[in-house]
Write a protein that binds this DNA or RNA. Sequence first.
RNA 1: GCCCCCGUAGCUCAGUGGAUAGAGCAUCCCCCUCCUAAGGGGAGGGUCACACGUUCGAUUCGUGUCGGGGGCACCA
Length: 603
Amino acid sequence: MLRSDSPKAHLTALFQHAASQFALAEHISIELERPKQASHGDFACNIAMQLAKALKRNPREVAQLILASLPVSDLVEKTEIAGPGFINIFLKPVAWQNVALQTLQAGEEYGRSGLGQGKKVQIEFVSANPTGPLHVGHGRGAAFGASLANVLAHAGYQVHREYYVNDAGRQMDILALSTWLRYLSLGNQFVPFPANAYQGDYVSAMADSIFALHGDRYMRPAAEVIADVADATSDPEGHLDGLIANAKRLLGADYAYVHGHALEEQLGDGRNDLTEFGVIFDTWFSERTLHESGMIDKAVKQLQQHDHIYEQNGALWFRSTAFGDEKDRVVLRENGIYTYFAADIAYHLNKFERGFDRVIDVWGADHHGYISRVKGALTAAGADADRLTVALVQFAVLYRNGVKASMSTRSGQYVTLRDLRAEVGNDAARFFYVLRKSDQHLDFDLDLAKSQSNDNPVYYIQYAHARICSVLSAWGGSEKDLIDVDIARLDQPQELALLRRIAEFTDTVDAAARDLAPHSIAYYLKDLAAELHGVYATCQFLVDDEALKLARLSLIAATRLVLRTGLALLGVSAPEKMTREEVQPSPENAQAATSLTNDESRV
RNA sequence: GCCCCCGUAGCUCAGUGGAUAGAGCAUCCCCCUCCUAAGGGGAGGGUCACACGUUCGAUUCGUGUCGGGGGCACCA
């Protein structure tokens, strides 16, 4: 007779029943928390204190009334009223022991919560300009977004992952120009390479490949390329724009090829990078299609119909100040080209049209000022802006040799996500990225990540998983035989602590989904692994007592399931074996260690 | 000037409207004849930046101050 509800859900129902005698209780949610101190029981309920004021009675007195009408349960050992009016509940061991069997029965479904109720949610993340390799800042957005998407899916949402491709606009033109200038130099047409163009080696590589494929088909005289272009020192941006205009004129229809080649190369590179990082998208949505399909025209017309657009200085402005923005914003420039903002309005209206109940954008914290603008435009267009949630992810600041490293894509001086993955591994990178709250700045110390990768908490968790695999493998039996065992043999404090932790998983997933906080999964897994290691250190699993052995194996099999499920949510692998690479101290390290010792001995 | 994030142990950071605020690293001390010691146990270490409010109760919520970081384009 295995119950299907968790101990907490069971108790919540009991308290709901007990509280229903008070009319006011309908507005109060039953909160059961796990006390920090074991002497306060398995759960503590503060409902008496919540009700006390409205009832104008002493909280301890209210607690008495609640307890008097609390239905009898075979899981409850005893209850007590403590402190200012807490009701502490002590459960019988069987309440927790059942958790192991419940977990094994649920299998991969364990931890699912009803939060999402099958609602469709779209999550858009990364969406980096395809103008160069992804860097460590994009990595954080990728790891956060992918983990959050997994968490939402496990919490019962139907999740759609999308990448918005900024394939229109000036930045892409600058990349195309940069590539073309490098290409021209291959035919000895030397145009001074602008300092504010894309400097990275990947640009030259693309030029090489175009030259290899098509020879001098796109070659033009350098003198014509720089003709009538603004001075590079006094007007660097105007200089770039002049070069772009000349490139478009001189190349004619061929410009689209150079532009398209650069786009495809960079987008493909980013896609491969992300795929290797375990970050997969359902849709890659092209900004250009918004322009070409007339969706932006439509969106702006929609705003015009609601009288939120006016003309000034030859441009069209959206009156965003009417929606809480600090100033009005241009949607159609004087030159007749829509702004990025205009495209984004159309894009978000399109998201809503596609029938998502909820839309989540993962943006870098530098975009925070942009939120009110987009939401304002959605409201202005008659859409429900509350269906859009923007999750801001603070910067990942990179440190190398203790110094903040430059992160500029144009200057080409940055560490790529690919480099980072190669150095610390995908698992450590994914885990490290989500180990901080998203609204916390992340100091990513490369040297530390590299030199101490063996101390990374991800290994601690993976090791717990590997240990279980090792034991179950040595046992050699089938996991199915562990679903129906005499679980009452689990009575050690460490075993019960582990069971309690396993029981928390569903609430953890639920809270992580609700708060858009995948980091709490990472912290939960650390705690879970710690409990497992504790049991491992105190209990022998493969003992002669057959019933005890099966009970303990059942416990660790359930633990393995939760570890696996949780790690999968974070995109981290769950290895069955951990093999340590014996690192021999290099001569420099040995020297450094020696000199450090000498320094200390001088004190 | 306006807006956003942060301020918790020596360091990096979790956490909570509740009853004695936690982890990892670092420091110190223990534990492998035994399923991987990438492990376990223990010790020390705190004015939860500061002030005032709200509350039965504030480290948590609000306001202000101070400190750190970031953002305020007819760029994307």
